[in-house]
Design a protein around this nucleic acid. Structure first.
Ligand SMILES: [Zn+2]
Ligand SMILES: [Zn+2]
Ligand SMILES: [Zn+2]
Ligand SMILES: [Zn+2]
Lengths: 135, 135
DNA sequence: GAGCTTACCGGTAATCATTACCAACTACCA
DNA sequence: TGGTAGTTGGTAATGATTACCGGTAAGCTC
């Protein structure tokens, strides 16, 4: 039997915090925000829910340059395969997709005889706002 | 003045271990191998040299799914921009490149007005050998 | 080769993100 | 309202990576 999921305020808080943010945030970031809002959430709980959301497929994970995991709510557009263009200053994120990359990835893998191929494709830059602000 | 680099046997050991391996290996992996060979290297030393090699540009880093850093010697072919097709079973790696992806990345970034754009593109699969071996 | 200077070594302690534990708590159903 | 089982959150444990620092040795000069 599939474990029944209970709906708790903490779960909602974590999900909303991420959704509202719009970009990629670390677990510690989310924790800090929720604490700042006066709510009392445990760090364990934050990690737990982030993981659940990832398993559900509504949240994407990317490891930043330091290897730290950052999460982003992609649920609303979440079923279709996509990638991201992330601002390395403010974390703002645009969802992107491209037939070209997908085709290329498949071809390359096939040429080398690799099976069960998956891929990681992320773009990092400085968004218009951040560019304007700090020129 | 640029700090003068001394050539030590430990440095050579780390570099050779990576080069010989051919694939992406974690610092701990390299450490284990060097220890297995009877040599006595310190873990700190391994980390230190891996970082140096990365700074020199002869070694590439990728964070695996767990966020752990893995390193690969790409020095011999190292000047030109390239990506990797990595076997998630044995770590074997093929260097790959593609005009298509580079162009696509540039276009997408431009469309969204992002500047100083960099990208991460890595393919993960199961290499021919590993596929054959384990059905 | 001997002596010097100083980068380098490596063992250990410290840092940090993430996970494991577990007793107290509460959502949900009858 | 009561009971059951999933959930919470503080704390301890884990694991990778970094900071320290006294001891070692590479490279240079004579
Ligand atoms: Zn920005
Ligand atoms: Zn894709
Ligand atoms: Zn393989
Ligand atoms: Zn590229």
């Amino acid at each position: 039997m599939t474990t029944k999921q209970r709906s708790t305020k903490q779960g909602a808080a974590v999900r909303d915090a991420l959704r509202t943010s719009g970009g990629f945030r670390s677990a510690q970031d989310v924790y800090a925000v929720l604490r700042g809002d006066g709510g009392s959430v445990g760090l364990s709980t934050v990690y737990r829910h982030l993981q659940s959301l990832v398993d559900e497929g509504v949240v994407d994970v990317i490891h930043n340059a330091d290897g730290e995991a950052t999460y982003r709510y992609c649920g609303d557009t979440g079923d279709h395969h996509h990638h991201h263009l992330v601002c390395r200053r403010c974390g703002r994120t645009e969802e992107i997709e491209g037939r070209a990359v997908e085709r290329w990835a498949g071809e390359v893998a096939a040429q080398h005889g690799y099976a069960q191929v998956d891929h990681t494709v992320e773009l990092f830059g400085v968004c218009p706002s951040c560019t304007r602000r700090r020129r």
